[in-house]
């Protein structure tokens, strides 16, 4: 009887343990370091074929870092679903690990994440500057965006407009030489134009917005900001013309927006409506003296 009770209790404990935790007995000690590195890389690539953040995807990435704890790519891939889901503590734990293993590859990417997902301009700048010192004489491209452009955005957020213009101009010059102006990220002219408005250089602002507007599928933002500048200059007809174009482009979804986050200085329909109201008032005021005379 006591023996039966003893066996039953072992079975019960086994079942309890099995349901609470996941057990594995896979060991990779017999593999060489190179073999472990290769196997871990294979599991990482396999994980990338699956839906990011899914149970299977995470299990494979977790396995990849068990096989090779120095697999920085797997650590980085583990961090992303947490970032997108708003689980920042877990994101930070994984991305810090990736950076510790390979700062050259991932620090600029964390800068990108800090800039767009947290609006942490100073923190992003720290990462972007650090990544630049690691790769001298080379412009980095985290998330396929020039590090100079990103630094320009950071200084824009910190309201250091002179430094911002310096980096944006460096980006424009560099990309124009490498690829040609037609392949530039035209949103740079939105920010250059906004800085010019804030520095009261309205003619310069118009120049930037018109330059950005030359691109084939230019954003509603260019026309909207042009309308704003014309409003300030009391050129109501030009302002109305640009605002109408802006509204049409906006309704066609042809505007600056982020993916998974709000773009910096993103415009909304309410902004267009507010400017239209302002324009209507200006037009009425202009018409009043004409009627009275």
């Amino acid at each position: 009887m006591s023996c039966l009770r003893f066996c039953l209790s072992i079975i019960l404990v086994c079942i309890a343990l099995q349901s609470c935790v996941k057990l594995s007995n896979e060991r990779y000690n017999r593999l060489t370091i190179d073999e472990r590195r290769a196997l871990s890389a294979e599991y990482t690539q396999l994980a990338k074929r699956l839906e990011m953040g899914s149970a299977k995807n995470m299990q494979l990435l977790d396995k990849a870092v068990r096989i090779n704890p120095k697999n920085d790519l797997a650590w980085r891939e583990l961090s992303l679903p947490y970032l997108y889901a708003g689980m920042y503590e877990e994101w930070n734990q994984h991305i810090v690990k990736a950076i510790e293993l390979n700062a050259q590859a991932w620090q600029a990417w964390r800068g990108y994440d800090r800039l767009f997902f947290f609006r942490d301009y100073a923190g992003a700048l720290f990462d972007l500057d650090a990544s630049d010192t690691l790769t001298r004489n080379q412009v980095d491209y985290p998330q396929n965006i020039s590090v100079d452009y990103l630094r320009g955005l950071c200084y824009f957020g910190l309201k250091d407009y002179d430094k911002s213009v310096e980096y944006f101009q460096s980006f424009v010059q560099d990309e124009t030489i490498k690829l040609g102006e037609g392949y530039l990220d035209e949103s740079v002219f939105i920010y250059l134009g906004l800085i010019a408005i804030r520095q009261n250089k309205l003619k310069t602002a118009i120049g930037y917005f018109q330059r950005g507007n030359k691109f084939e599928e230019s954003f509603a933002d260019f026309n909207f900001h042009l309308a704003k500048v014309y409003c300030i200059l009391d050129e109501t007809e030009l302002a109305q013309k640009e605002l109408d174009i802006a509204r049409n482009k906006f309704e066609d979804n042809n505007r600056l927006r982020g993916y998974r986050f709000e773009a910096i200085e993103q415009i909304y329909l309410s902004d267009i409506d507010a400017l239209q109201e302002q324009l209507d008032v200006s037009t009425q005021l202009q018409e009043k003296p004409n009627n009275q005379s």
Binding site: I10, V13, C14, L17, V21, K22, L23, S24, N25, R27, E51, G53, S54, A55, M58, Q59, D62, R66, P81, Y82, Y84, A85, G86, M87
Partner: peptide
């Protein structure tokens, strides 16, 4: 039980049961 698991070389791993988030 512990001796059994150690001898069979088991260890606990993270269990991802559903989509993150």
């Amino acid at each position: 039980l512990l001796s059994f698991f150690i001898s069979c070389d088991y260890y606990i791993v993270k269990d991802y049961k559903e989509h993150v988030g």
